[in-house]
Amino acid sequence: MPRLKKKGASNLDTLPNVVMVEPSNAELVSVKKHARTTRNAKNKRRTQKDPIELSPDQQELVNIKNSLGLRHQDYAILLGIGLPRLSSYTYGRTASVPADVMKTARQLLAENAEATRLLKEKFNRPMSEILQEWENKLGTTSDAELAGLIGVVTMTINRWRKNETKPDLSALNRYDRIVNLVVNNIKQLVLR
C-alpha cells in the first residue's frame, strides 16, 4: 500500500542527485584574489582618514607638552584633568580647550621651560652613555641589578645599552633621580 504524502512535506526520493565538483585552481585563485582585494580596499579606506586639524589652542596644548618632554599621563596630572579629557583636546575630538586648562598649560611652560631645557641638554646623548654613568655612580655592571634598582625589566636595559630605545624626558629624569637617591642612601649608610 503506497504511503500518502502529507501536505507540504517533500519526498526525498524525487530530488535530483547533486554531484559536488571541486573548483579548479584558477577559480580558487580568482576567489582568493577577490577576497584579498576587497579586504585591502576596506583597510585602505579605514587608514586613509583625513588628518584631524587641531584648533590653535589644541595645537598649542600639544606643543607645550612636547616642549616640556612630558608623557601624556603626566601632562594630564599637571593640568589637573583626566587623561580622557586631555586626549579629547589633543586629538581634536572636542571643539576647543577651556581657558583655565590653557592658562595652566601656559603657566607650566613658563615655570618649567628652563628646567626642561637643562634636562634636554643633560640627556642629549646616547642611552648607552647615560647607562654607563648610572653604573659608575652605583658601582654595578649587572643589567639585572640596575634594572631592579630603577624599576624596569632587564630586557629594557639591554635595549638601552644597544641604543635601540630611549625613555622620554620625564622618565629619564625619574630614573636619574632614583639613581641619585640610591647613591645618596648608600653614602649615608657608609658614613654611619
Score class of each variant (00 low, 15 high):
residue 89 Y to V: 00
residue 135 E to Q: 13
residue 92 G to K: 01
residue 31 V to T: 08
residue 145 E to L: 13
residue 165 T to E: 04
residue 112 N to H: 08
residue 31 V to I: 12
residue 61 L to Y: 01
residue 15 L to D: 00
residue 153 V to H: 13
residue 131 L to R: 05
residue 8 G to P: 00
residue 159 R to A: 09
residue 152 V to E: 02
residue 136 N to A: 15
residue 174 R to D: 05
residue 112 N to L: 08
residue 73 Q to M: 10
residue 68 L to N: 03
residue 68 L to E: 00
residue 39 R to E: 14
residue 65 K to M: 09
residue 152 V to F: 05
residue 191 L to D: 14
residue 143 D to G: 04
residue 22 E to A: 11
residue 128 S to C: 08
residue 140 T to V: 06
residue 139 G to R: 04
residue 41 A to K: 12
residue 59 Q to K: 11
residue 6 K to W: 04
residue 175 Y to L: 07
residue 112 N to V: 00
residue 28 L to D: 04
residue 190 V to L: 15
residue 105 A to Y: 00
residue 168 D to L: 10
residue 13 D to N: 15
residue 166 K to Y: 10
residue 51 P to R: 07
residue 75 Y to N: 05
residue 125 R to K: 15
residue 138 L to E: 03
residue 9 A to E: 08
residue 21 V to R: 04
residue 80 G to C: 05
residue 81 I to L: 04
residue 38 T to M: 15
residue 156 T to D: 05
residue 151 G to V: 01
residue 113 A to S: 10
residue 102 M to F: 03
residue 106 R to G: 06
residue 191 L to I: 14
residue 177 R to A: 15
residue 76 A to S: 06
residue 57 D to H: 07
residue 26 A to E: 14
residue 131 L to T: 05
residue 192 R to P: 00
residue 99 A to H: 07
residue 128 S to W: 06
residue 56 P to W: 02
residue 146 L to F: 02
residue 36 R to A: 14
residue 89 Y to R: 02
residue 76 A to Q: 06
residue 142 S to E: 04
residue 150 I to D: 01
residue 119 L to S: 09
residue 21 V to K: 08
residue 90 T to G: 06
residue 145 E to Q: 12
residue 166 K to F: 06
residue 25 N to R: 11
residue 29 V to E: 09
residue 22 E to H: 04
residue 136 N to F: 11
residue 35 A to R: 11
residue 167 P to N: 02
residue 50 D to V: 14
residue 105 A to S: 01
residue 26 A to H: 06
residue 73 Q to F: 12
residue 109 L to I: 05
residue 109 L to E: 09
residue 17 N to H: 07
residue 58 Q to M: 02
